[in-house]
Nucleic acid binder design. Structure first.
Lengths: 229, 229
DNA sequence: TGACTAAATTATGAATTCAAAATTACATTC
DNA sequence: GAATGTAATTTTGAATTCATAATTTAGTCA
């Protein structure tokens, strides 16, 4: 996607593309709450656009599963259910595993050093208990590996799926125990990357996903039992 | 997706959803040729709809990679390049591998028998040299395995990617040698499914994809050297 | 008071309209 | 005759309009 855009000197964005991005942010940030109606009129006023491009954007988001269109009843922010988490994570796991394998084949030594650097920063965040910082750097590492896989299709697919889980993943604040386990997993990941052991890195990334899935599921069940549905 | 739709008695389709399906067919069938402009006006007249729903559909197809939107220059049918084939197939391979594993866990004995039946039909098509029939039944088997995986997200993702390769895959008429190899691979696949050996089925499906990728690549290169670009 | 019906209101889906951008056709110059 | 610049035409992107479906409100009757 970036590759193609860079060919043309000026990468103009159409309104609907811009809106897709903006709406993704609103949904991930929770500004548009899961299970609620997408306030078409409000958003038009907020972004100062007409309904046409906004609705185009909603159609795209719907095909990505971020919103759900109900015929004649408008668009709703998709509520992430346990069932969906159990569906999406394994798929994401398989894709990240592939990314790991490909990354080991294609990543440059310089890039490996850059990943290691971010990893070390992340460890600092962990040790100082900075969960937000940890999260951001964590995501960054996954993005760097994805990028090193040199496969835009894979990148796009992963990001689309990630998007759907971003919010619950962020909210599922890890327990101290899970957090330390995650850090150990990440140590392993970076070591395997440095060793360029693609096969094993793939397996480890998939396991890492599986652990995240459980963490998110625990959060969802905890939430469900605390709040009334 | 089907699950949710089946809740509501009447599954009405909005115009744009209908159009997404119709346009997919036109693109896969080659009626809309790769690399050509999507004739907005013509299609509006053909389907007797206004530009609004048609353009909504194009936005969705663009996010699936079937068409490419150029700002202020309209929509173009995406031309499948060798690079794209090399990108999409591995991703599809990883997803099908996952599907195989999950299918072995979740498929019923009855479903296995049904797959076997379609497989046997496919062999008949092979032996009578009916390539079209073989293709259809082949696709059907893959769909059945996907369905048995009981993961709608996986199904949707696979189908979206498959769509992008459908046309070249169909055109890349297999050589006699490749065809017989494909049949042997399918024998193995069905046997592993009956043995419910998920791990091995996954591996085999991924290999099968890899072989298909090479077959398609050979076709694309052959085409490129025969025709002027 | 509470359930049901009907009218009024609002929101949605899709067609139409309109301004801006791109393409084409044409003329002019070298 | 090719190349450049300009006007006319077409196409695109987005706003607006309009018909229809859904929701809300008001009103009726038990």
């Amino acid at each position: 996607m970036t590759a193609k855009a860079s060919v043309h000197a000026i990468a103009r964005k159409s309104l609907h593309q811009e809106l897709v991005g903006r709406l993704q942010v609103l949904i991930i940030s929770g500004d548009l709450a899961p299970g609620t109606k997408v306030p078409e009129k409000d958003l038009c006023e907020r972004f100062n656009v007409s309904r046409t491009p906004l609705r185009e954007a909603l159609k795209v988001l719907a095909s990505d599963g971020l919103v759900t269109l109900e015929p004649n009843r408008g668009a709703w922010v998709t509520r992430v259910t346990a069932g969906e988490v159990e569906e999406v994570f394994p798929v994401l796991g398989a894709l990240e595993a592939l990314a790991g394998e490909l990354a080991c084949q294609n990543i440059t030594d310089e890039e490996i050093r850059a990943v290691r650097k971010v990893h070390d920063e992340m460890i600092v965040s962990y040790e100082s208990g900075d969960l937000d910082g940890y999260f951001d750097l964590n995501q960054k590492i996954h993005r760097m590996i994805l990028l090193a896989a040199r496969n835009d299709t894979l990148t796009t697919a992963c990001q689309a799926l990630s998007m759907r889980l971003q919010r619950p993943r962020y909210l599922a604040n890890m327990s101290g125990e899970r957090w330390s386990a995650a850090v150990r997993e990440h140590e392993k990941i970076i070591n395997l990357l440095e060793a360029r052991d693609g096969r094993q890195l793939g397996v480890t990334l998939a396991e890492h996903m599986k652990a995240k899935q459980n963490s998110v599921l625990r959060y969802i069940f905890a939430e469900k039992s605390s709040k009334a549905t």
